[in-house]
């Protein structure tokens, strides 16, 4: 993807963001009329500025792109960057999916089990060769975290629902 393309996408997203929140702004209830500057003014100012800047950005990159095309359309700066293979690119994606799964599970099955599973899975993904080490690592880390935060510092990490809640209560 060329840099110009990226700029277009970025500014379009900014415009969408600003428009969405602008549409939402009138729904803010003004509950206290005695206030000279109400709760809507500030977001209006911010969003309008954002919109203007984004439109300005699009126009600017369009003009720049035209200019640079007419001057030097041959060597594209982007090509210098090596193309990544599909598989390598996907590792951050898989990691992200794992992280999201972990966090979603956190609320349902609690900190203990979800952390065990996550640590086990992600350490294998990130290059741990030995299964056993992964398991030891997962168990050890979970124990340390529970001991430190929930037992020592009395911070109740997410417990999960139902039987998982009961399980966590055995430990902290």
């Amino acid at each position: 993807m060329s840099n110009v393309m990226k700029d277009y996408i970025f500014y379009s997203i900014v415009i969408l963001f600003a428009l969405f929140f602008l549409v939402m702004t009138p729904q803010i209830k003004i509950t206290n009329g005695t206030f000279i500057i109400g709760p809507r003014h500030w977001p209006y100012i911010l969003l309008t500025l954002m919109l203007i800047l984004a439109i300005f950005g699009i126009v600017k990159s369009y003009i720049l792109a035209k200019k640079s095309k007419s001057i030097e359309s041959k060597d594209h700066e982007d090509k210098i960057e090596p193309e990544r293979t599909f598989f390598k690119l996907s590792i951050p994606m898989i990691s992200l999916v794992l992280v999201i799964l972990y966090v979603l599970l956190l609320n349902a099955i609690g900190f203990i089990i979800s952390t065990l599973l996550f640590l086990y899975g992600i350490s294998l993904l990130l290059g741990q060769k030995k299964q056993l080490y992964s398991i030891i690592f997962a168990v050890l880390t979970t124990v340390v975290f529970i001991g430190l935060f929930s037992v020592l510092l009395s911070i109740p990490l997410p417990r999960g629902l139902g039987i998982f809640r009961q399980l966590s209560l055995l430990f902290y």
């Binding site: 099955i109 086990y120 899975g121 139902g162 039987i163 998982f164 009961q166 399980l167 055995l170």
Partner: peptide, 21 residues
Amino acid sequence: ISILFLGLVLILAACGGGSEQ
């Protein structure tokens, strides 16, 4: 092995839950 691991953990959880309830 991961499935086994998951299973183990779940059993553990079930046991823990039962005794507490």
